[in-house]
Design a protein around this nucleic acid. Structure first.
Lengths: 146, 146
DNA sequence: GTAAAAGACTACTGATTTAGTAGGGATTGC
DNA sequence: GCAATCCCTACTAAATCAGTAGTCTTTTAC
């Protein structure tokens, strides 16, 4: 399961990607997405440090997307907040750790199975950019009206 | 990430599926798989309650697989120990919970994306039975020797 | 140059989960 | 009856999560 932090981050980003605004106040995003303000503050800061968002301090400041919506995907966000995507540490690249459970990693079928799951999952998460999510929402809303 | 309990369970089951023995002592599985004995005890008990293993008490007793290796798959084991497979509670069936983050679940693109991931993951985990894992290990070992 | 608006940062907290450990109790075979 | 074996409850230390509180810094408007 994703942490709340991660889910909040995704929803905040989708909101920012779909709303035509130059700058977003923490307060506005917090209200629009129903995220505790102080908590969101920390989240947006993390996203800024990761280069996803930019910010401007002082009066008239706020946050803004630093990259185009098609350049930001779910895999990146999930990794940023919740770490590795794989189910086992020995089936990751960026967060690799040898597992104590398998005697020989090379011939461990459990690792092999979860490696397959991981690869497919990463592909799917990468295939979902903010742009995709915004478009999808528009489609789902149109379908509902019918 | 899977809990240790879940990983231990999978390794213990694979061990039992590949080893031609009628009954397994906790102690033996514990040593063969490098799992703390007392911890494994609780794990095997859970698997027994779930109908995966059977057991016999007293002298000469032990645990044994109650179903054929091809009838036990990873999805079931993961669900048993770690709960839902999906990344978000609103994208599960067995552990469903409405999420506070999305205003309208029907048109929530985040849910839609993770539902897609979940479905694919479940399929893959289901496709990996104990039998498959044992066979895979044999193959990997053969390939390594070459 | 000062006040107000905004983000940046540090530190704390209560609740929950994880990964075990301890210590008996119940059952069975001989 | 006694030793081997699984069954069960309770406890604990450490980590993580989800958030809150409070202060500091930067920027703009006047």
């Amino acid at each position: 399961m994703l942490s709340k932090k991660c889910k909040y981050a995704v929803h905040a980003l989708v909101y920012m990607a779909k709303t035509p605004k130059e700058k977003f106040l923490i307060k506005d995003v917090s209200e629009a997405c129903a995220i505790p303000k102080k908590f969101l503050e920390a989240i947006l800061l993390d996203l800024k440090r990761a280069g996803v968002l930019g910010s401007k301090q002082g009066k008239g400041g706020g946050y803004f997307l630093r990259r185009e919506p098609y350049e930001v995907n779910l895999a990146e966000i999930v990794r940023l907040f919740d770490g590795a995507i794989a189910h086992v540490p020995c089936a990751t690249y960026k967060f690799y750790e040898r597992c104590t459970e398998c005697v020989d990693e090379e011939t461990c079928s459990v690792r092999d199975a979860f490696l397959q799951v991981r690869n497919a999952t990463v592909e799917m998460l990468k295939a979902n950019t903010l742009e995709d999510l915004v478009k999808k929402e528009t489609k789902l809303k149109a379908r509902k009206k019918k």
